[in-house]
Design a protein around this nucleic acid. Structure first.
Lengths: 211, 211, 211, 211
DNA sequence: GATGAATGAGGGTTCATTCAT
DNA sequence: GATGAATGAACCCTCATTCAT
């Protein structure tokens, strides 16, 4: 008896987490419904509480999970082996495409920020995930400066925030932007144009001033 | 006597709208509480429905009101009289500072985007407010290109979205960014640095390629 | 000044009463909305209270008005001049058609009965309207008995209740009856059949037993 | 211990249904109060929604339940074994007494008709309950015609509607009728007289014309 | 006679959460 | 490890009615 209860447990936990992430992404923390999460995950409502304590615990778990996912994918780019401009170009492309393909990440972050980051404040898991990112970007900038391609004195965090901002804002705010400018921002062509625009903007932002 | 803060339709409506904007900004559409809005506006709860039909009507009114406000302030910059680079610098500065001083605008837009823009979809007031903005920015770009300062072929909308994105994302996501990078993004110094970074980034993005 | 304010007042009162009758008929006393009555009558809400005291006063006024109307129309039949069988046939036909053409009367009565007749209890106007009806029917029965067509000993009230019941119930309960029996009770043909059935039933009920 | 009246789904559901039926009968659909139903059933208010979705779902359930009850009792009369006249007499008696003893059925139907039968329209349970009734009555009429007691060509539905109407209307409208005719319709004697009147009326309606 | 603004009580419904098994 | 029944607080909204003008 009790054969691989552990495996089943993990599976249940995983299904709940996946359903929750979807739900939070779609409706925000406040709009998310515990009932819907239970139903979609095929788990009993009581199980959510068993595994995650409460709705907010579940929200935090989603957040951690998604942070871990993007940072993991990022590290697999192995940018330290590429020439600085190329490395930067790849990071920009990756970031844009990640947001595009994982819209739940964007909405999750918006929710957490609406709540002033109070869930992450209680988490020790998120912060460490980001040290490699800054190191990597710092390394690229240093190498670029040394070889004369990039300006000196660029703050890796400021640059990263720009890389993120240019895509994140476009996608996160696409509904209001579409209405406001009367254009569909999500056609294949529009997306291609935005990616090009972002790449240009970021590369222009770091390049050394011409003599 | 005259215990009435009431009996003045416009004033009552205005107080409700102000309180609602605050509330929606703080808690989002779903998290906002109609009771709190009523209480803070000093109006009877019934009045919210009298003037705005329902919670969502009130939300839309807030949104329209805030859009109208930023676009109005923007038009007062009178950028058409300035040299292109200076005009652009001012627009960047204005946008950054507006978000900084009116955080409610940022959260309001996030909420509307969480709901896929469905409130604005029913509004005819918002769209027209934005035509002058695009014209103005198009005019600046054209003048800059003509005088040789700016590149040709820049899409005013793409540029505007970048101007907005660089500040909006930094401020909107400051809670997660702070945790993630372990830095306080809201010190006076940090804000000054970000504004400088944004200005550089945008000006670099439009300047003509050196020969 | 104040020229024919009386005429206007009567007109306003009349429009309110008409709108109220419609509203009560459609939604019942509980479901009726004072706002809707005001709007449809084109009168200010305050006026309803001015003329009728409150919602229940308005309901009673509707009731009295409709009772007065049907009894008035009934008296115009001048049945006392007709042969007993013909007089009875006409009364049956009139009653059926009145309910058919004035469905509001039916719903109004149902509402009042749901409320155990407590509005009428306060009215002195309704009772006297019905004395002539009983006299008239009593007169018909007496004449019929004397000429040998009708049985003796029929209670005019019992008979009248049957005359009313046969049509009233069919029309009042047509929705449930239609569903329950799977037939449309309101086609022209169905209505003709019901009228014939009722006439037969009532005439059979009073005729003298064959020797 | 065992302070729980609860933890028994069927029992809870049943208590809610009983309380709801009473409440709807007394105040109509619009006038019924969910709070009162909860309180009287001893259940938590939330449970009404758990079992019946919403107030209208509860109303429909009451309706279905009461239809099922009357039709069930009716079938137990086993009229197919009786002589036609006796069978009809019993059906009339049963119908009258059922309305008398179950006034909630009458008010429930009135409510549903006020709402144009829209709840029943969504129910598949009610219709089938009535097929046996029509068959039974059709059978009685056929047997009566064959033996020469009854007329031919009587529509069972028309006859049933008359049987119902004669008692239903008297009881349903007893409040207005009492006021209007100035007589107490509910004394034991009055009820006996009405039952006799109805029986006579219905039997007269079907009997074969004398040669 | 007439108006629009205002009121407070309470309406149905939904929520995250916990209990008993 | 899992379940369905149960909870009570609170949410958005609507009501008949009245006040100030």
């Amino acid at each position: 008896m009790k054969r691989n209860a552990g495996r089943d447990a993990d599976a249940t936990r995983g299904r709940i987490l996946a359903a929750a992430t979807q739900e939070f992404a779609r409706y925000g923390l406040g709009g998310a419904r515990v009932d819907r999460i239970a139903e979609r995950s095929g788990a009993n409502k009581r199980m959510l509480y068993y595994y995650f304590k409460d709705k907010e615990g579940l929200f935090l778990a989603s957040l951690e999970d998604r942070y871990s996912h993007i940072r993991g994918a990022e590290q697999e780019l192995r940018l330290e082996h590429l020439a600085p401009r190329e490395a930067l170009r790849r990071l920009v492309g990756f970031t844009w495409n990640y947001y595009l393909e994982h819209p739940e990440f964007v909405t999750l972050l918006n929710s957490e920020n609406l709540h002033k980051g109070r869930h992450m404040a209680r988490s020790a898991r998120v912060r460490p995930l980001h040290l490699p990112l800054l190191h990597m970007l710092g390394d690229i900038l240093r190498r670029g400066a040394r070889e004369g391609t990039f300006r000196r004195g660029i703050d890796p965090m400021q640059l990263y925030i720009s890389i993120a901002a240019e895509g994140y804002f476009y996608l996160s705010n696409r509904y209001t932007l579409s209405r406001v400018f009367g254009r569909n921002l999500m056609t294949r062509r529009a997306l291609r144009e935005r990616e090009a625009h972002i790449t240009d903007t970021i590369l222009n932002a770091v390049r050394r001033e011409p003599a």
